[in-house]
Each structure stands twice: as C-alpha cells, then as structure tokens.
Design a protein around this nucleic acid. Structure first.
Length: 426
DNA sequence: TCTGGGGTCCTAGGACCC
DNA sequence: TCTGGGGTCCTAGGACCC
C-alpha cells in the first residue's frame, strides 16, 4: 500500500486578508477583525500581530490613541464575504486533487497520495500561486505523511519567511530538528490544559512527546492524544474525511448588543436564534426532536449572576419552525427569573436524524406529510431569493433592543449587487 | 458603554435491568 | 454478621478544534 501524503493548505490571516483583497490600500496596514458585537479581536493581519495585539483581546481595551498612532483598521466580521471567499479558495483547490477535506472556513487537507512522482514542494508552490491568482488570498502549504505532520509543516512554513510559504517535511533530512522546534502548545490536538500538563512533566516540544510511552500518553490524554502522538511519529491514523458528516447538534446563540431584563425580550431574541437553528436543520434535510434553551447574565460584570438551561422534547421529529418557537417560549418562561440583567441566550437543537428516517405516527401527521413542510420550503425559497430574513415570524420581535452591534461592517463585495465594487475610468 | 460563536469526541459515573 | 455482578444506556463535564 502506498504511503499517505497530505497537504494542509491554510489561508494566512484569512478574515483580515479577505478585507485587504477589496481594499488594496490596506495591503501593508495593521488590520483586525472583530467578533459579534464588535467584542474581541478574532483575526489579525501580520502587521497587527507585530504591534503586540493578540487574538482574543477585548476591542474596547485597545487604547484609542494607540489605534490612531499606528494606523490600525478594525472591522466588524463580515461572514457573508468570508464564506464566499472560502468557497472560491476551495473550488480552486479541487482542481489540484479530487481528494480534499474542507476542514474549516480557511483550511483544507488534500491527499497527494498518487502524486509522489512529482516534486511536491513545486506542486505546493503551484497551488499557492494559483489560489492567489484566483482569489487574491495568500496561503501556506504544509506537506507531510500524516495530517498532524502536515500541520507541523504548515506552521514551519508560516514561521520561516525564507521558505516562502510551502514546506514538505517528508524528505527533510532532519525531521527531529523540526519536531524539536515545535513547542507542545502549537501541536494540533494539544490545547491549554494538555500543554500545561505536558510541561509539568518535562515535555516541551513535539520531539519529546514522540518519545513518551504509549501507555502514559493514553492515560493522560485519552486515545485521541495517543493517535496524535502516533501521527507525530509518522504513522497515519487520521483519515481524510471527504464527505461532510451530518450535524449531531446545532447551536445558535449570541450575546445581546445591550443587556435585557424582560421575559418578552429574552423570548424574542431567543426566537430569532431558534429560527436560524431550525433553518440550518432544514438546509441539511434533517429533523430533530430535542430543544434546549440557555440564558445567562454578563459574567464580566460585578452584579448578581444567574445562568440556567432546560430542554423539551417534541412529540415527533420536526423541522417546522413554529414547533420549536413554541417549545422555546415555554422553556424560557420556566427558566426566566426577574431581576437580572441578561446578556446572552441560546438554542441548541439535538437528537437530529435525516428526514427520510423520521418515524411515522399512526395518529398524527408527521412533518414531511403535511402542509408544514410545504410552508417551510416556500419560506426558505423566498428568503434565499429576496435576501436574508425578509420573511420571518413576529415571535422574533420588531424593535429588537438586544440586536448585536456591528459598527464597522464592510460591504458584501461578492454576494450583493448593491455592494459590488465599482471600477472607475479616469 | 464595550469581553464571540459553533462544533466534536471521550470518559466517568449513575440509573436501571436481569 | 452477612449485603452480587455484569451489561447497557444516558448525561455531564472536560478536553479539543476553528
């Protein structure tokens, strides 16, 4: 059997790079992208990183003076734009191999198993050039015999400018040196807790981790950790997942732009999240029978705290929005306590199955059989054609005092005719 | 004034059954 | 005084990812 070969293609500072594509004057400027509610920094251009700002920093804590002095640009996140740019990148990658796993909005694993006769580094460079030509986005390419080592190679490429964005660890003469360079916290599968634990035990880099006994690793990090360590040793354990597995749960939750105190506001905000969640459920042709609602106050504030959640089951699996809206409002009434400033609520839909597997009931019509599905299909179609949520339920409110803040949103250049960039003749 | 959102997997422990 | 054992299912919590 031929040995596996993986390439990890990863967009550099993806969100920030997307903004730069449509604002060329930002090319060498420090750019940051904010989370919902313009709360924290979620993506940074290299120039912004150099100024000492980190992912996760609260936007309001960054000194205004500092922003002005360094010419920093901060934007609200524009997921419509990023989603569309992501599709374009993935389309391009598909031209290089049919075996591709879209791992996240800005990353894909490619299987290059049948390509060993090629110079893989050269091929990687070709991928990088082509993606740039098609989308204007810079990517890094890491190549390795396992997914985990492709990740290592990718990081190595990113951190060493002289490599020019493409690194193949397979034929590197001194792999141990690369693994020694890789600190444990940056290994794929090692998070904050495991990194601390490993360092406590004298393991500081990937090479040292490969030397740890299997038993010890499994004991401390479960079989998931053991799999990762084997991958670092060059034994491929994590396969390419080409088809996207159906979701097992769907969560929609958001902090409010301004905190709310009234039950009705909470119900309306949650109804909106609920509608989004059920919409996603329908997109995958699934039905669900369990709904969970959760609410909480602002944990950063020095004021009375409260958090609670509760679930309900639907009599039959459904994807009909009102079934869920009704359950959500009832649960909310149960968990709501007056006298608190609520900052966040959310909906989780679980017990999900494909609609074709939904059980039938002798006494009541199921979702697929009656008008409910027709109504939902119709609504989804109109919303897709006319723009998001042109058609909605009054349950999600009219005034929406809780709506999130997005004060520095850029246009949806590629998905909206109103926002399409204009080329002017001079 | 202002601190994100959406997922998955594994394990331990309790409930329940025979 | 003596107080089973094993299997399965479910849930909560903890870890990770982007």
């Amino acid at each position: 059997m031929a040995r596996d070969v993986f390439a990890l293609v990863d967009c550099n500072s993806f969100y920030a790079s997307c903004e730069k594509v449509f604002n060329p004057h930002l090319a060498d400027k420090p750019v940051g992208i904010l989370s919902n509610n313009d709360g924290i920094i979620v993506a940074l251009s290299p120039e912004l990183k150099k100024l000492g700002i980190k992912r996760g920093d609260a936007a309001f804590k960054i000194d205004k003076q500092f922003i002005r002095k360094n010419g920093i640009y901060l934007f609200s996140s524009n997921y419509t734009l990023y989603g569309d740019m992501s599709n374009r990148v993935m389309q391009t990658l598909h031209d290089f191999t049919p075996d591709i796993e879209i791992y996240s909005i800005d990353e894909a694993f490619l299987s290059l198993k049948g390509f060993k006769h090629l110079n893989l580094t050269k091929y990687g460079r070709q991928i990088k050039r082509t993606v740039y030509r098609h989308t204007g986005l810079p990517v890094s390419v890491g190549i390795g015999p396992t997914k985990t080592l492709a990740k290592v190679a990718n990081r190595f490429a990113k951190k060493h400018p002289f490599i020019e964005g493409v690194f193949d660890i397979i034929d590197h003469p001194d792999k141990d040196k690369i693994l020694r360079w890789m600190e444990v916290e940056h290994i794929w599968g090692v998070g904050r807790q495991y990194a601390k634990m490993l360092r406590r035990n004298g393991i500081e880099n990937a090479f040292q981790l490969t030397q740890a006994p299997n038993k010890w690793v499994q004991n401390k990090m479960t079989i998931v950790g053991l799999r990762m360590v084997k991958e670092l040793r060059g034994i491929s354990c994590i396969n390419l997942e080409e088809d996207i597995p159906p979701k097992k749960e769907i969560v929609s939750s958001k902090s409010f732009g301004t905190s709310v105190t009234e039950l009705l506001d909470l119900q309306e905000a949650t109804a909106e999240y609920c509608l989004r969640a059920v919409e996603k459920l329908r997109e995958e042709n699934q039905v669900a029978s369990q709904i969970t609602i959760f609410i909480s106050t602002n944990r950063f504030k020095n004021e009375p705290q409260y958090a609670n959640y509760a679930s309900a089951r639907l009599p039959l699996p459904s994807a009909y929005s009102p079934d869920f809206l009704h359950a959500a409002a009832t649960i909310m009434k149960k968990i709501y306590r007056p006298g608190y400033n609520y900052k966040k609520s959310g909906v989780m839909i679980s017990d999900i199955i494909h609609q074709s597997k939904a059980p039938l009931d002798f006494f009541q019509p199921c979702y697929l059989d009656d008008k409910r599905k027709v109504i939902m299909d119709c609504m989804d179609e109109i919303n897709e054609k006319m723009g998001n949520h042109r058609l909605t339920y009054a349950a999600s409110g009219i005034k929406k005092p809780w709506q999130m803040k997005r004060q520095a949103l850029t246009p949806s250049y590629t998905t909206s005719w109103q926002h399409i960039p204009v080329v002017k003749a001079i």
